[in-house]
Write a protein that binds this DNA or RNA. Structure first.
Length: 585
RNA sequence: GCGCUCGUAGCUCAGCUGGAUAGAGUGUCGCCCUCCGAAGGCGAAGGUCGUGGGUUCGACUCCCGCCGAGCGCGCCA
């Protein structure tokens, strides 16, 4: 309907231009919006006010001229001027009713489109270091990324969901060493556990399963382990130097093969746990991309060569630097360290290049604490001749957890955090998925555990699910009464739906496709979330003021057709959010 | 100090990319079940949109200053 009205306006303006009433040269951006106030009609355009300046005329006068030139349309009942120069359109309610038939006919596909025309895009999200279980902070990125992926798919993108696994680097070495030290403890050794090691209970679990599977294969004497290791922080030393020395010692005492076994056992165990967690959370991936594979197959080396060839690399203090400042970054960045090892940045450059080369545009979903990282990656892509616009970073603020009114501090290292698994156990996947995308992603979010766990009506998810279940309940009752539902009959009697509750509900159903499109294009699941809330509100209100199962058979079928269409849209929307639409509660 | 993000009802947050009288939920206070599920509905109260300027027909929205919050500023990832 919007595009139809825009086209009508376009025609009117064109003929006014031909008559010399409006200047020939105009850059038109015809905006049609839904009115907020029903007394302003169904749709409104501000085009007359936008034309006021170039035409050097009073907006109301322009609006009058446009209306006079407007081609007639059977579904446009009335057009008038209001306020400073708005053009308000009143639409034939019967034309709005047609949406009900569309919804029932298209079913789960209603609202989807192909406006992206199959464009390939990769959404990379969560990608937490496999050094521990996912916590509630990761949960928001998971829910957001999965939902954004669903939304993009719904408007015709070919979406590739990917988890970038940081299975290389120092953090992983710290993990492996932490496991090994716990393993030594399980062998009866007395260990002073490093302050910078991973202290979670899951480390000991991995260590004891290693002990069970391999016996004493990795055993060592405590003296050999700690001999000549610089002091830890509590002992007045440097915790970083302490842990680095322990890593070297672990590699030395275990030898390459055994160290690798400890390392891979830890990695496999934790990553397996993460995968399971995400699956249970309804978050699915097309690929789990290994950082180490980039090293093994030479992709990092190739990327570095490409950067060097671009002329934006230089050597200083024994390291290779990338001149990211040339592209607006705050400072230049090290790509190859003076010890010859590549940085995480180098891996990331190779990873992004690799993705672009496979034909995907990139959507990275990162915690907002990584925002400073964006310019350098874009700079690298640009230096290598790629279009940085093909990479988009969506930042997600961490949710701050509250319990008993107290803010909960979280740290993976110390092992003190609420895991995603615990959260799901307490409030269920549906509530967690819904809660996480209730707010705009870059907005700080307070996640009140007491509220979410209260299972009460304070939880907005129940409200939406309840609307869906209520329709199902009505249909069950219909059957119990020995009555039947005849869709065709209902669709033939839509003109009986004239109550204000009914026209309002139909109007909201009409908005679903554009709402979905908008939510997808702006990467804003919360818009869909709010829409579903609004749709539910109108349904509940309708439910309370009118009975659906009435004596007038035609009216009853018309109403049943309307509430079934509502149920379909609720189900479609909840589905995109990764939430169940229950038949009963 | 510099950079990014953000300040909207008591609380948690929307505000359709510059439009008409700034909206929801929650909380508080009134009502509504002989009735398809009251996990519901109807109504009331609640605001200097952090603050001071600017841009224009028109600003919560765009620009600048200030105040306040979070994050970032490693040859860590």
């Amino acid at each position: 309907m919007k595009t139809r009205l825009a086209s009508l306006l376009q025609q009117a303006i064109t003929s006014l231009q031909a008559q010399g009433e409006l200047p020939e040269e105009l850059t038109l951006d015809i905006q049609i919006e839904h009115t907020r106030d029903p007394s302003h009609g169904d749709y409104a355009s501000n085009i007359a006010m936008m034309l006021a300046k170039p035409a050097k005329k009073n907006p109301r006068q322009i609006a009058q001229s446009i209306i006079e030139q407007l081609p007639s349309d059977n579904d446009v009942l009335e057009v008038n001027i209001a306020g400073p120069g708005f053009i308000n359109f009143f639409i034939n309610p019967l034309s709005q009713h047609a949406v009900i038939g569309h919804i029932l006919q298209q079913g789960i596909r209603f609202g989807t489109s192909n406006i992206a025309n199959g464009k390939k895009v990769q959404v990379e999200f969560v990608s937490a270091n496999p050094t521990g279980p996912l916590h509630v902070g990761h949960g928001r990125g998971a829910a957001y990324g999965a939902t954004v992926s669903n939304l993009l798919t719904a408007i015709g993108y070919q979406v590739h969901r990917e988890y970038y696994v940081n299975d290389a680097g120092r953090q992983m070495d710290i993990l492996a060493t932490s496991v090994w030290l716990r393993y030594l403890e399980s062998c009866g050794k007395t260990i002073e556990f490093p302050s910078n090691g991973y202290k979670g209970a899951y480390i000991s679990d991995i260590a004891s399963s290693l002990k069970k599977a391999r016996g004493d294969a990795f055993n060592a004497k405590a003296n050999d382990v700690f001999n000549n290791i610089p002091a830890d922080e509590p002992a007045g030393g440097d915790k970083e130097k302490h842990i680095d020395a322990l890593i070297s010692r672990a590699k030395e005492l275990l030898g390459h093969d055994h160290y690798r076994i400890v390392f891979d056992t830890a990695l496999t165990s934790i990553l397996g746990d993460i995968r399971l967690d995400l699956e249970d959370f309804g978050v699915h991936y097309d690929d789990w991309f290994s950082e180490r594979s980039l090293m093994d197959n030479g992709a990092i080396e190739r990327a570095i060569e490409k950067l060097k060839a671009s002329g934006y690399m230089y050597q200083k203090d024994g390291a290779w630097w990338f001149k990211s400042t040339e592209f607006g970054d705050e400072k230049d960045r090290v790509v190859v360290r003076d010890n010859g090892l590549t940085t995480y940045f180098a891996s990331d450059i190779a990873y992004h290049l690799h993705t672009l080369e496979r034909g995907y545009d990139i959507i990275d979903i990162w915690g907002s604490d990584h925002h400073g990282y964006v310019p350098r990656v874009k700079a690298a892509l640009q230096a290598m001749g790629a279009d940085p616009e093909r990479m988009k970073v969506l930042l997600v603020q961490f949710a701050v957890l509250y319990k008993g009114g107290e803010k909960m501090q979280m740290s993976t290292r110390s092992g003190q955090f609420v895991t995603l698994r615990e959260l799901r156990k307490e409030i269920g996947s549906d509530a967690a998925r819904y809660f996480y995308v209730m707010r705009k992603a870059e907005q700080h979010m307070d996640f009140d555990l007491d509220l979410a766990t209260s299972q009460s009506n304070e939880n907005p998810l129940f409200y939406v699910q309840y609307a869906h279940a209520r329709v199902c309940s009505v249909m069950r009752l219909l059957t119990e009464k020995g009555l039947s539902y005849t869709e065709a009959d209902g669709l033939n009697n839509l003109d009986k739906l004239t109550q204000s509750h009914e026209t309002a509900l139909i109007d909201t159903l009409n908005r679903y496709p554009e709402k979905l499109t908008q939510a997808a294009q702006n990467f804003e699941p919360h818009q869909l979330n709010h829409y579903l809330r609004e749709l539910s509100t109108q349904f509940h209100s309708y439910y309370n003021s009118h009975k659906f199962i009435v004596d007038d058979a035609h009216l009853m079928q018309a109403r049943l057709v309307l509430i079934n269409a509502t149920k379909q849209v609720l189900s479609n929307g909840l589905g995109l959010l990764g939430v169940n639409a229950p038949e009963s509660m």
